[in-house]
Every structure is written in structure tokens, then in C-alpha cells.
């Protein structure tokens, strides 16, 4: 409760939250405002913004850019959040095992993590999506698979810090089982920074998805911001609106998530929180 109240007083965090809520609302009401599918040709090709009832103009085939941006919000948010959660699941499990058990297990898992970190994430993502057919699920899993290493390292560091704290040793002496010590004592005390990094991972996941769609590796059935920019990039000199509006959408969403994540980080970090109050 106190955390929520502290967050409400955090200026940039609140700006992020409001922006993010706007994006969420747009995603929710997209089918009501734009009952026609964004793939449908509703006007003349290259309609400039404001003409023919198309606020943000039409694209090369006369599809409504505004509808595309609204439906794209659904895709971006869904993929961003789902793949960040996937990354968190992988990262926390690997980091927790590595940090708690240490020794050889830690050595093997950390070398594996380093292997993933040395391969450029985007190249690996392209490789994975191209290998499996691009679909919503494979894209989410791919982005999750390339974004977990920082989360694993963070979780490991937190576990190492907490592993030999006296309250954890006390739980061990009380006869609590390993899984209970991990889930009941270490994880709850490590969760704040993990949540913050996960929220920031949502932003990078949205960027990754956009980049994949831009390369034409998105789910062909989903209208996404990256796809729209990719489709409009060849005509950007005569029809700027096709790429600029989805680009602005990406910019605002990523900015909103970053502001929100930083606000969360400040509020959950007791030292910073105290300084502010």
C-alpha cells in the first residue's frame, strides 16, 4: 500500500504510467473505434492525413494507418509483456539455481549464459524466427530466449547476496526444505530489482518485435508497428505519415515503459524512496 502511494508521488513514474494506460486503452478499444480490419483497403492509396476520414492517412494500398497503429498497440503490448515474462521465467530459474547451489552447477549455467550474451541478440532472434515459422508464439519464445541473460545474472547476484544471510541460515536450521527456503525467503527478498528489470525488458522486447517485423519476420497475420514502418520505408520521402506515426507509437510506448520501470525502481529501493519522502 505504501509502495503504491509512494509511486503516485513519483513524477516521471506517473507520466510513464499515464502514457502506458493511454496505450493500453487504445489497444482495448481498437475494435470499437475501428470496426473494419486494419488490413482492409478503405481509401485511396497515399491518402494524406486528415483526408477521406483517415486521420493519420492511408498507406500504399489505401489501408487506414490510424487503425494499424491502434491494432498494432495490441500486438506490441501482447508480445512485449508475454516475451518479457518468458524471459523472466527462464532467467529467474537459471539465476536462482545458479546462485543457490553454486559450485559446478553455477559454473556450467553461467558459461551457458555468457554464450548467449556473446551472440548479438538480434541476430540470434532473426535466426530463430527464420528457422521456425514466424507466428505469435514463436516470436514470443524467441524474444524470451534472447532476453533472459541479464535477468539470470541479476537473479544470481541477488541469490548470492541473500544465500548466506542469517535469516536464510536460520530457516535452514529450522528444517525448512530447499524449495521453501528459495520461494519463501530468498525470492521475495530479491523480487524488487527483478521486477524492475522485467518491466524494462518489456520495452526492449517491443523494440525487438518491431525490428523483426520491419525485416518482414513478424507474424504475417498481425498488423504491427514494425511491419508498418517496414512497408512504408520505401516511400518515406513522398508519404512520411506511413512510417512516422507507427514510429511515434513505438517511441511513446517504450518511453512510457522505461519511465514506469524507473519509477518502480526508485519506489522499491528503500534508500532512494527514503530520500524522496
Amino acid at each position: 500500500m505504501e509502495t503504491v502511494r509512494a509511486f503516485l508521488r513519483h513524477p516521471s513514474g506517473m507520466i510513464g504510467l499515464v502514457l502506458l494506460l493511454v496505450v493500453v486503452v487504445v489497444a482495448i478499444i481498437a475494435p470499437i473505434v475501428f470496426p473494419v480490419s486494419p488490413w482492409e483497403m478503405v481509401g485511396a492509396p497515399f491518402t494524406p492525413p486528415g483526408e477521406d476520414g483517415l486521420w493519420l492517412g492511408g498507406d500504399t494500398l489505401g489501408r487506414d494507418v490510424a487503425a494499424g497503429v491502434a491494432y498494432g498497440a495490441r500486438v506490441s503490448l501482447l508480445i512485449g509483456i508475454a516475451s518479457a515474462l518468458a524471459a523472466m521465467a527462464i532467467g529467474v530459474v537459471i539465476g536462482a539455481i545458479s546462485g543457490y547451489f553454486g559450485g559446478k552447477v553455477d559454473l556450467v549455467l553461467m558459461r551457458m549464459t555468457e554464450l548467449f550474451q556473446t551472440i548479438p541478440a538480434f541476430v540470434l532472434a532473426i535466426l530463430l524466427v527464420a528457422t521456425f515459422n514466424p507466428s505469435l508464439l514463436t516470436i514470443i519464445l524467441t524474444i524470451g530466449a534472447v532476453s533472459w541473460p541479464p535477468l539470470a545474472r541479476l537473479t544470481r547476484a541477488e541469490f548470492l547476496r541473500l544465500r548466506h544471510r542469517e535469516f536464510v541460515e536460520a530457516a535452514l536450521c529450522q528444517g525448512e526444505r530447499t524449495w521453501r527456503i528459495v520461494l519463501g525467503h530468498i525470492l521475495p527478498n530479491a523480487i524488487s530489482p527483478i521486477l524492475v528489470v522485467t518491466s524494462l525488458t518489456v520495452a526492449t522486447a517491443i523494440l525487438l518485435e518491431s525490428a523483426l517485423s520491419f525485416m518482414g519476420l513478424g507474424d504475417p497475420n498481425l498488423m504491427s508497428w514494425g511491419f508498418m514502418i517496414g512497408a512504408g520505408r520505401t516511400v518515406i520521402r513522398n508519404a512520411w505519415w506511413m512510417s512516422v506515426f507507427p514510429g511515434l507509437a513505438i517511441l511513446l510506448t517504450v518511453l512510457a515503459i522505461n519511465l514506469f520501470g524507473e519509477g518502480l525502481s526508485d519506489v522499491l529501493n528503500p534508500r532512494v524512496a527514503r530520500r524522496r519522502s
Partner: peptide
């Protein structure tokens, strides 16, 4: 070992570090 530990208990030095702050 878990069963044996039941019979042996410890009180640590720092009362601030030895209780889980979230429990």
C-alpha cells in the same frame, strides 16, 4: 540431516539480519 537439525538450534548475533524482513 534435516531430522537431526531439529534437535540443534542456533541464535545468531545480529537480530536485524537473522529475521526475514518480509515474514
Amino acid at each position: 540431516l534435516r531430522q537431526a537439525r531439529r534437535q540443534l538450534q542456533i541464535v545468531f548475533q545480529d537480530p536485524f539480519a537473522s529475521l526475514d524482513p518480509r515474514q
